[in-house]
Structure formats: structure tokens, C-alpha cells
Design a protein around this nucleic acid. Structure first.
Lengths: 136, 136
DNA sequence: GTCCATTTGTCCGTATGTATC
DNA sequence: GGATACATACGGACAAATGGA
């Protein structure tokens, strides 16, 4: 098993996040598959549950995993993407939603929003996990 | 002073995050201004420093504040925005960067990246706090 | 339906390290 | 050196929701 180095420069919880991220991005943990439970990870690596939660929190903010409480933590499953066409003169930015916006649009953690601004200044917000913009 | 309701349905750290977010969005705490220290917030509201850190962590993931350790926690100052023109057929998405990408591009916490994909499939990433895309 | 084990969420306390002023 | 402030890591406790026996 991959190991954690307590004497390393990098924080322990970041090392654990790196390990789990690698397992996800390598495909060893596929979309929809559960991560080991927090208790299991803590025991396996000799860490406190607090530290394990920090690591998983990191992956949550990166949008790599979602939590279905209390069933477990799962590798995020990609949403079907809808393509939206940009009109002339429109600008596009991205930012994190506020807590209120997250609930309103039912956004998962770690999912930004795309903000489209018309030349008149009107803004529309799109969930970045379900929308792609295109210049035709 | 605004109060925390321990009997409320909403978690205490979320209530504190709400209070601080309101003070930022109302302009009472302007860009570049420091938040009260974690210890100060803990004492003022009768909370543990752990809980205060949870609240501030929430605002960090929302990109509302930045931490300059150990000077303090500050309301994020908007970056100068560079406008990038989209070519025909390009697609635009957004996602959170991984930890490695964050360090590579010197991205602040809570800042997504804009991902531009050419028709050939080449991807370029832009920090969403410094770049806006436009369809001319 | 009830009981119980599992799992995540929340909150507290403590300690130590590191960088700044 | 000392005080301040954030970062990391540990520990414990209880709550809430799920799922299986």
C-alpha cells in the first residue's frame, strides 16, 4: 500500500488526498464507485478521522467526489452536458457559487458556475458541470 | 451583535459563515480588509476555534476571502481582468483546478479555471479570476 | 416494525509548528 | 525575544440517516 510520510514537507492530509486523487484519475476508482469509509482510511493509514476528513474535503472542493450521507463518499459521475451558443459581444467568466446559489441550482460541491454577460450587462448563470458554451 | 442559534436547524459554522458573508457582500467589510482573527471570532461568538475555522473554510472555498498566513484573513481583492477572444468552433467549460494546477498557475483558493477546447481537442486553461472570454 | 451497525456531520478540546510583526 | 495568527494533527463525543438482520 502507498504510504504516508509524516516527516515529509507536504501535509499528511494533502498526501492522502494525492493518493486518493491518483486512484481516481488512474481509473482504479471509477465514476460512481465508493471510496473507503473515513474510519477505514484512518485505520489503514494510521491517521485520525479528522485528518482523513481534511483529505476528503480537499477532493470535495476539487469536485472529484460527492458525499451521499450517510451512505458514503463516491467518485463523481459526469453529468450530461448541454451546449449553449454564445451570442455576439457576450462575455464569459466563471466563479464559485454562493451557498444560496448552490442550493437554488442544486449544485454539487466543487462545481463552479459559468457567468455569461450580455453587452447590456445582463448576467446569466449556468452550472459548469452540465453546461458548455460554444462559439459557432 | 448578530447571534448564533445553537438550537437552529442550520449548523453553527454555517450560520457564522452566513454572518461573515453578509458583512462582505453588504460592503461593511470591503476588498482587502481583514476579518477578525479566528481567536477573536471564537471569543466573540462563544465558539471553538475549530468551528470558526470551518466557517472561514466555507468562505475560502467560495472564493470570498484569501488567507495571508500568518498575517490574517482578508476579503478578496478583484484581479485585473484580461479579455481573451474565442475562435470559431471553440468550446468553453469551467471546473475547479486540482491541487497541482493551483500551485502551477498560482491560483487562489476558491478560484475555478476556464477550459477552452479547440475543435481538434486541444485544451487550454485560464484562471477564472484574471480571464474573461468573449465572442466578438 | 424494531434493533443495531455503519457512515457522515458537527462540535469541542488540546498540542505543536511556523511565519510575521 | 515575545506576542499574534494561521496550519496541522490528534483525541473524544454525540447526532442523524441509512440499511440490513
Amino acid at each position: 500500500m502507498a504510504m504516508i510520510d509524516h516527516s515529509a514537507d507536504r501535509a499528511v492530509f494533502r498526501q492522502l488526498a494525492d493518493l486518493l486523487r491518483d486512484r481516481i484519475q488512474s481509473g482504479e476508482l471509477g465514476p460512481g464507485e465508493p471510496l473507503p469509509s473515513e474510519l477505514r482510511l484512518a485505520q489503514d493509514h494510521g491517521l485520525s478521522r479528522t485528518t482523513v476528513r481534511q483529505a476528503i474535503g480537499q477532493l470535495r472542493t476539487e469536485g472529484l467526489v460527492t458525499v451521499d450521507r450517510p451512505r458514503g463518499t463516491f467518485v463523481r459521475v459526469p453529468e450530461p452536458v448541454q451546449v449553449v451558443t454564445l451570442a455576439r459581444g457576450e462575455h464569459v467568466g466563471a466563479r464559485m457559487p454562493t451557498d444560496a446559489e448552490r442550493r437554488k441550482h442544486r449544485l454539487g460541491e466543487g462545481v463552479p458556475v459559468l457567468v455569461v454577460t450580455t453587452p447590456e450587462g445582463t448576467e446569466t448563470v449556468h452550472p459548469a458541470d452540465r453546461v458548455q458554451l460554444t462559439r459557432p
